[in-house]
């Protein structure tokens, strides 16, 4: 689809809004429907659209495989890392109330936001990997 001018231009226009909306959904999970998972999928949709229209080599340029692989792990590490952090601070695993914040409510909110970002990162990168791998050509 590399010669379709309309598609290319529209994609360039659309992708930033998709990414912003994805971040909005992740960050807004506590207030309304949405959260890390849904936001991550929307973020990934932006990348996948870009990959479909501009080709996979271009996708690999903006999102190199090694970075994507590492980020998929880092998302899980961020989530579990919050748990390890709370253990190190003297609480139990994922007991957000011991996190350093103004009060216990804020600590819980901090913990929840961090883990939502963890989910978002992993989901986004794994969905990109899924698209990347399923459209892979040649024998594995």
């Amino acid at each position: 689809m590399k010669d379709q001018v309309v598609l290319r231009v529209m994609t360039k226009l659309l992708v930033p809004y998709m990414l912003v909306f994805g971040f909005y959904v992740i960050a807004h999970g506590e207030l309304g429907p949405g959260g890390g998972f849904q936001g991550g999928v929307i973020l990934a949709a932006g990348f996948i659209l870009y990959g479909i229209v501009y080709g996979k080599s271009e996708l690999h340029r903006v999102a190199p495989r090694r970075v994507i692989d590492a980020l998929a792990g880092i998302g899980v590490l961020l989530y579990a890392g919050v748990g390890v952090w709370t253990m190190l601070l003297g609480g139990r695993f994922l007991d957000y109330s011991v996190l350093p914040a103004a009060d216990y409510g804020a600590a819980e909110a901090l913990g929840m936001v961090l883990v939502e970002y963890g989910v978002g990162i992993t989901v986004c990168t794994v969905m990109i990997t899924v698209y990347d791998m399923i459209s892979e050509e040649g024998r594995p």
């Binding site: 899980v76 989530y79 939502e116 989901v123 794994v126």
Partner: peptide, 19 residues
């Protein structure tokens, strides 16, 4: 993210495993 946050962590791990 709070009461069943531990399940959600494994949910993330499941996705990661699929990747």
């Amino acid at each position: 993210a709070a009461y069943r946050g531990y399940d959600t962590m494994y949910e993330t791990a499941v996705i990661f495993t699929a990747g």
